[in-house]
Amino acid sequence: MPSNDLFVYSLALADDALILGQRLTEWVSNAPTLEEELALANVALDHIGRARMFYGHAAQLVDDGRGEDDLAFGRDCREFTNLLINELPRGDFAFTMVRQFFVDAFNVPFLTALVQSREPTLAAIGAKAVKESTYHLRRSRDWMLRLGDGSAESHVRTQRAVDELWGYTPELFEPFAAEVRLAQAGLVPDRDALKTGWRSTVDAAFAEATLACPTAAWSVRGGRDGVHTEHLGHLLAQMQFMQRTYPGQQW
């Protein structure tokens, strides 16, 4: 059923955006400069805003009385379908910026393709989000260069971040069942087709940043099936606390 597939799809994109947004908010009052406080908060706000749009669309599609907050605060770990890369703890500044770069480098071509969707709401969300992600990519790519080719310490930290994150990137290009059907119907981008372009964007940045591309072949996946890392449970316990403790109230 296209409409159930679209619901599952929107929900996955919403979860991706919310979980990453939540991780970014953890930098508030912890950023290396006041200017970075503002910049990181902007990226977080963009992701949270995008999540709300996708949750809103999902809620409309499923039409079972749930709204954006029910979807965000009322599902447990096993029902969340975000990619694992988004839920990893923020780590140090290098880890955050490398993760952001990997995600941004994916999001720009992905959202550019989503704008072409024949599903008008997805296309509209894509159109708004692609402008934001274009700016995010400019920022995160600049940071890759500064961090990779800055000081000896920043180089070590950044290379370590690259090595730790690398195995979480294959999942970016693995469409799940509903996504495959929707892509075949021409309603959503073919995620797998974005891999080559992403790889060349990333390789170019690595080269300029004097970073080595990891050679070890390992990968972790399972997000779309609700099989998460142990980190997500703690994130949700914190995020959902108020709604779980005081259910059914207005805030």
Binding site: E35, L38, A39, N42, D142
Partner: peptide, 20 residues
């Protein structure tokens, strides 16, 4: 005013600080 590493970063920070 704000502190930045170079003009390019200054523009980005200015966008984030002064045009929200």
């Amino acid at each position: 005013s704000l502190h930045a590493q170079d003009h390019r970063q200054a523009l980005e920070y200015a966008r984030d600080t002064y045009t929200r």
